[in-house]
Amino acid sequence: MTDAVRTHGLYKQYGRQTAVAGVDLVVPAGSFAGLVGPNGAGKTTTLSMITALLRPDGGRAEIDGFDVWRDPVQVKARIGVLPEGLRLFERLSGRELLLYNGRLRGIPKADVEQRAAELLDVMDLTGSADKLVVDYSTGMRKKIGLAAALLHNPSVLFLDEPFEGVDPVSANTLTDVLRGFTASGSTVIFSSHVMELVERLCDWVSVMSGGAIVAQGPIDEVRAGRSLNQAFLDLVGGGHHNQAGLSWLGARPQEGR
């Protein structure tokens, strides 16, 4: 089986600060993969470079065996992306956004309309389909963004913090859609801070810290008997902090002051 994503020494520097220092990310095809790491570990930078939204300073990235920077036509037809920040075409309605996206990729209008209607229905957005995206809530934005990313039936889906700020009902919808998507042999890669979620959804996990991969593999191998949270803390070195400096916190003044 070929790997859905494979990078070699991906490297990015901002000024004097190295954001990503030689990432070798591997994700087998058909897996539901989690990319975890503390804030500032370089997850977003890595995902942006793999999806050709950010030019790396060094290294290579391949998707389904195609080089991201040398074979953009093949790569861009195969990937779906939901970046962080979620800036969409704000002045289109949800439906118009999907139609625009599908037709921009050359899918015939009739097909796009049908797919858009089904996606809106699954995402529970039919009621708001004709409202402008600028007036959508965070959860609705994530859902319409995911719908736009799925519209052209990509084989690899990249999601940056897809569950952040999403209510439990919408999160459930998102996970159902994503599970069905990987069950058909496609690949999902998403970044997250929430270990419980990664543990519940993923069969493959890559742990980043300080701009590099510190562990990756099937989730049970990485966990090695611990909870993923504990394994993560052990890997990135986040111990218990000395709280002596916060002695006033929680202390209440005496009665009758």
């Binding site: 939204l53 861009k76 704000e90 996206n101 921009l104 736009a148």
Partner: peptide, 15 residues
């Protein structure tokens, strides 16, 4: 004017 939503075009443009 597209601003930060331009990525949506960028991930679609292969050529």
């Amino acid at each position: 004017i597209d601003g930060r939503s331009l990525w949506m075009n960028a991930v679609a443009f292969g050529a």
